[in-house]
Design a protein around this nucleic acid. Structure first.
Length: 171
DNA sequence: TCAGTGATTAGG
DNA sequence: CTAATCACTGAG
């Protein structure tokens, strides 16, 4: 597939368990504080899948915070955790299928909280449309790095079944 | 191992 | 209104 092409809505309107591993090796482009566009290859993601997934915020139903996850895929879901860290997620699937991919890391930036802090991602990115945004989007690269799978991080509260789903994908 | 930090949510 | 919870990080 050609590189340098923006991933359009159709890429994200698929099941999160297809989209999440597919994002490994793709480039995230973002307008930085100095106005330059940075390009970062994605290395670490997690899938959160619907209302039945007890680790997914949408499992508690539709709330103001989770509203964007219920929309059609291709937008960002950004929220604050522990009063300090913004988490960057990409909404996937069709409308009313609340799913999202947490971007845990990109090349040279490990950890979801450190990533957003470094790149200047905050609440203003919540709901951003990845089809048309001029400050953040994803691009095809043509590379498909080998990756590992494992349980998701920081969701011990979700019970034995959900906390052991191997829905983390990382290089 | 554990405190920091404040938005979000359920409940009274 | 109160209080619990939290998809994390860095210090010790």
């Amino acid at each position: 597939m050609a590189s340098g092409k923006r991933l359009s809505r159709d890429f994200f309107i698929r099941d999160v368990l297809e989209v999440a591993p597919d994002l490994i090796g793709k480039n995230m482009h973002i307008r930085l504080a100095d106005k330059a566009i940075g390009s970062f290859q994605i290395t670490d993601v997690e899938a959160y899948r619907g209302m039945e997934d007890k680790a997914c915020h949408a499992s508690k139903g539709r709330t103001p915070r989770t509203e964007v996850m219920f929309r059609q895929g291709g937008r960002l879901y950004v929220y604050l955790v522990y009063g300090m860290y913004w988490m960057l997620n990409v909404v996937t699937a069709e409308e009313n299928h609340p799913q999202a991919v947490l971007i845990r890391g990109v090349e040279n930036l490990s950890g979801p909280g450190r990533l957003t802090k470094s790149l200047g991602i905050d609440r203003t990115f919540n709901g951003e449309d990845l089809d048309v945004s001029e400050r953040i989007w994803f691009e095809e690269t043509g590379v498909n790095p080998a990756f590992n799978t494992g349980p998701r991080i920081g969701i011990d509260y979700s019970g034995d079944y959900w906390k052991t789903r191997p829905w983390r994908f990382y290089v």
